[in-house]
């Protein structure tokens, strides 16, 4: 009983933290996904001048932990004369991570488009940009949707790392409640369940979409 009463007391603050988490997650995706598509096209481009920089960004973005990227953006960049708010730093850092990971997912999707269809576009005299725009990208994105959804769940979880840069998101709120009430276990458990309440349904949905897609392709 007392636990539930405690939780009811924590809930308003945690809910507003959850809202911050969701907004930062969406912002990272909105900025990162188009960048990821650009990187995917860049890293499979014919020209080296395009390909190598794109591959470098992708490997750095995937090789460096999101937590480290967050520290670089929030604590590091001011030394280089660029000071960002914690919200801005969180959005940009997570967008970079999103771009790097989604570019690999999208590249996989683009490569799944059969070679014969590309030959057909050539034989029909369609330009390469047209072939990408009308044939490859629409199909590639479709193949990439389930893994992109899976990644969306991970990047939502990653917003919790922004607690380290003083962003008042869900974990940050929970931690500050914990340090003032010393009921760490209780408040952290509730925060964990709130994360799970978002991620588990999202994962189940992803599984379902994936099954439907694979049925459609067969």
């Amino acid at each position: 009983m007392t636990v539930l009463q405690d939780w009811l007391g924590f809930l308003p603050q945690l809910a507003s933290g959850l809202w911050v988490s969701v907004v930062v997650c969406l912002a990272a995706i909105v900025v990162g996904l188009p960048l990821g598509l650009a990187l995917a096209l860049g890293s499979s481009a014919g020209s080296r001048a395009l390909r190598w920089p794109a591959i470098a960004v992708v490997e750095i973005g995937r090789g460096a932990p999101a937590l480290v990227v967050l520290q670089v953006f929030y604590f590091g960049l001011p030394s280089a004369g660029l000071t960002l708010s914690s919200t801005m730093a969180a959005c940009l850092a997570l967008a970079l991570t999103t771009a790097a990971y989604t570019s690999e997912i999208i590249r996989g999707g683009l490569q799944a488009v059969p070679r014969g269809e590309l030959e057909a576009t050539e034989a029909l005299g369609m330009s390469r940009p047209d072939a990408l725009r009308f044939v490859v990208i629409p199909q590639g994105i479709r193949v990439a949707i389930p893994p992109l959804m899976g990644f969306g769940v991970l990047i939502f979880q990653a917003t919790s790392l922004a607690y380290t840069i003083a962003l008042p998101e869900l974990l940050g709120r929970a931690y500050s409640i914990g340090s003032s009430t010393f009921q760490y276990l209780s408040v952290l458990a509730l925060a964990g369940l709130m994360y799970a309440a978002v991620t588990i349904p999202a994962s189940l949905l992803t599984d379902r979409v994936e099954r439907r897609m694979s049925r459609h392709l067969a």
Binding site: P114, G116, E117, E119, A120, T121, A123, L124, G125, M126, S127, D130, F134, V135, P138, Q139, R142
Partner: peptide, 27 residues
């Protein structure tokens, strides 16, 4: 030069009509 392939190579995400119309529009 028009070409017809052994494996058809239609675009599976477009309807039959769009398969035929899209190249005309673009090319």
């Amino acid at each position: 030069v028009g070409m017809v392939f052994q494996s058809f190579n239609l675009f599976p995400h477009l309807t039959v009509l769009r398969n035929i119309a899209l190249p005309q529009e673009r090319v």
